[in-house]
Design a protein around this nucleic acid. Structure first.
Length: 416
RNA sequence: GGAGAGGUGGCUGAGUGGUCUAAAGCGCUCGCCUGCUAAGCGAGUGGGGGAUGAAAAUCCCCUCGAGGGUUCAAAUCCCUCCCUCUCCGCCA
């Protein structure tokens, strides 16, 4: 959520941002709602002040003057009740609109309307030539490592069974990544994957992306689509010591996504599934240092992909393709031989104070308290990395063979 | 799942309807004293929102787990929810 004060103090910046995001809304209506809510609140507070004053007088009075003052006090009380009902209504109305306003786009983010306008920053790694590249599912099925048919009988489409050495690789990858991050000062974390509504609002997934989230109505809980949600909420309503910043966490969790509206998209294999495992980096950061922190998280993501010998490119995501909470976002896309293209394997966002305002996470520097900045980045999206590893290391005979260096990480040299 | 206890400021903890504008202690900050990271003395110490203002500032409202209710007035009384702890049961 943005600071509503921007409407008074920096309307131009606000307008410019709407343009960049290509959002059309009636600004006059919004400004009027804000005025009305503040006015209504003020009026209620004025009456409340009067009532408080009178109440204190009554407390000091003898019985006789008390009886004289009571009718006036009752009147004020009723008046305040009426006014505060109005004030609350106005407040609610304004914030219903306001929470939907996305974050201010960083000045360095490319301006554009869709994925097409994302800007490639760099391309790393050598793309190998393959005669008849197979996709990960063909390879995985033939080697008995992946089964999606049976999974769809058991659970529906977009689920999978992973078997044998592929599972071994998953755990070795996770352990390698957690070790690396731990050495860099991230606290390895296994967070809850079921959360209350509040955590999803706080991180900006609600109300905008609510249709992507699985719900457990009996218990009023929701399955997280990324551990970002439970990691961000970890320090909700706290004032963090300034010298402790940045606080960095590496969360390992299973992630659940409904993938609503993606029918017919990426239907092969385990690229887009309802359930996958992921190691996520999350940082609570000094607002003045979040840009550096963002670059740092990106550099770690790159380091991991280089270690895994996966060719990739880095993309600076444009204004129109940013999520509501991100001010700036880098995606890393890995080379997928069967598709002869780069596909997203990580995403790294600086959400500035958009999440911390809703989650109420602050820090105190000298006398001033200020909202901290939060950042998140994928360290290891297990499923997609497995795809990249399988496809980029496939052999003509249908097996998969890793280099000596790489098998130090996977602890598996060959899938056959 | 059953039974009970409890949630007060950074922490401990007092407070059962009206100077609570939340005692006291600890901690922290500043000052004094002291020839040395002690003791003592004094002062100050939460957060959020709003009005006026160019700003400094001044004033107001909210905040005792959350929300609602009773009352002129709620930390205090009533209801709902959340959380923590203890005992029993069940359980990876």
């Amino acid at each position: 959520m943005l600071d509503p004060q921007i409407l008074n103090k920096n309307l131009e910046e606000f307008k410019e941002n709407l343009q960049k995001r290509e959002i059309e809304l009636d600004l006059d209506v919004l400004i009027e709602l804000d005025d009305k809510r503040r006015k209504a609140k003020f009026e209620a507070e004025q009456v409340r002040a009067e009532q408080n004053k009178l109440s204190k007088e009554i407390a000091k009075s003898d019985k006789k003057t008390k009886d004289e003052l009571l009718p006036k006090a009752t009147e004020l009380s009723d008046k305040f009740k009426k006014l505060s009902v109005i004030a609350e209504k106005e407040e609610k109305l304004f914030f219903e609109h306001w929470v939907k306003i996305p974050n201010i786009v960083d000045v360095t983010s490319p301006v554009g309307s869709s994925e097409e306008d994302n800007k490639e920053i760099k391309k790393i790694g050598e793309v190998k030539e393959y005669k008849n590249p197979k996709n990960h599912l063909e390879i995985g099925e033939s080697l008995g490592l992946i089964n999606v048919e049976k999974a769809s009988e058991v659970s529906g489409s977009r689920f999978s069974y992973i078997f044998g050495d592929l599972v071994k690789i998953e755990f070795n990858l996770v352990s390698y990544v957690l070790n690396k991050l731990s050495e860099k000062g991230f606290t390895p974390t296994v967070p809850p994957v079921l959360v209350r509504e509040n955590a999803l609002y706080g991180t900006g997934f609600f109300p905008d992306d609510a249709e992507q989230v699985y719900e457990i109505p009996n218990d009023d809980l929701f399955l997280v689509g990324t551990s970002e949600v439970s990691l961000a909420a970890l320090h909700g309503d706290e004032i963090l010591e300034h010298k402790s910043l940045p606080l960095r966490y590496a969360g390992f969790s299973t992630c659940f996504r409904r993938e609503a509206g993606t029918y017919g998209k990426d239907t092969t294999g385990i690229f887009r599934v309802h359930q996958f495992d992921k190691v996520e980096m999350f940082s609570f950061c000094d607002p003045e240092k979040s840009k550096d922190e963002h670059e740092y998280l990106l550099s770690i993501e790159e380091e991991i992909l280089r270690d895994l010998e996966i060719p990739y490119r880095v993309v600076d995501v444009c204004s129109g393709d940013l999520g509501a909470s991100a001010a700036k976002k880098y995606d890393i896309e890995a080379w997928i031989p069967s598709e002869e293209t780069y596909r997203e394997v990580t995403s790294c966002s600086n959400t500035t104070d958009y999440q911390s305002r809703r989650l109420n996470i602050r820090t105190k520097k000298e006398k001033d308290t200020s909202l901290i900045h939060t950042l998140n980045g994928t360290a290891l999206a297990v499923g997609r990395i497995l795809i990249a590893l399988i496809e980029n290391n496939q052999q003509e005979d249908g097996s998969v063979s890793f280099s000596d260096e790489l098998s130090k990480i996977t602890k598996v040299q060959r899938l056959s």
